[in-house]
Amino acid sequence: MPKILVFSTEKISDPAIDLAGLLKKHYPYTVYTISVPCSSCIKPRWIMHAYEKGFDGVFIAADGSDCSYGESCSDRTAEVVATTHRLMKEKGLKPSQLKMAAICSVCAEPFVKHITSFMKDLSQKEN
């Protein structure tokens, strides 16, 4: 089964992932979460490190417009993704191995939907 690393944010998307568990909304167990203060602080090198170490996909559960650090968060996160995509290309990784979506603090259902479809995509590509 593909392995996914999720970067979540402490105030916004992590509560959503917690809520998914609370509501017993199941998703594959090979999804691991590291939470950070804000999605715009994720370094491309961390993502690249994850691929190097064997993760098949990385999912950024972004703050979106709910970010408490201000409006620039979305743009900054998008930049992180763009930079990472460039690095991925250099390493011959598919852009589809990195996904990002804004997950609000109660968006448990959207999170599970995103992650399951991501998982599906990743496993299809492997075959």
Partner: peptide
Amino acid sequence: PTLDCAACITTP
């Protein structure tokens, strides 16, 4: 009018 989610604002 910001469409941020009420829970995200209230729960903290």
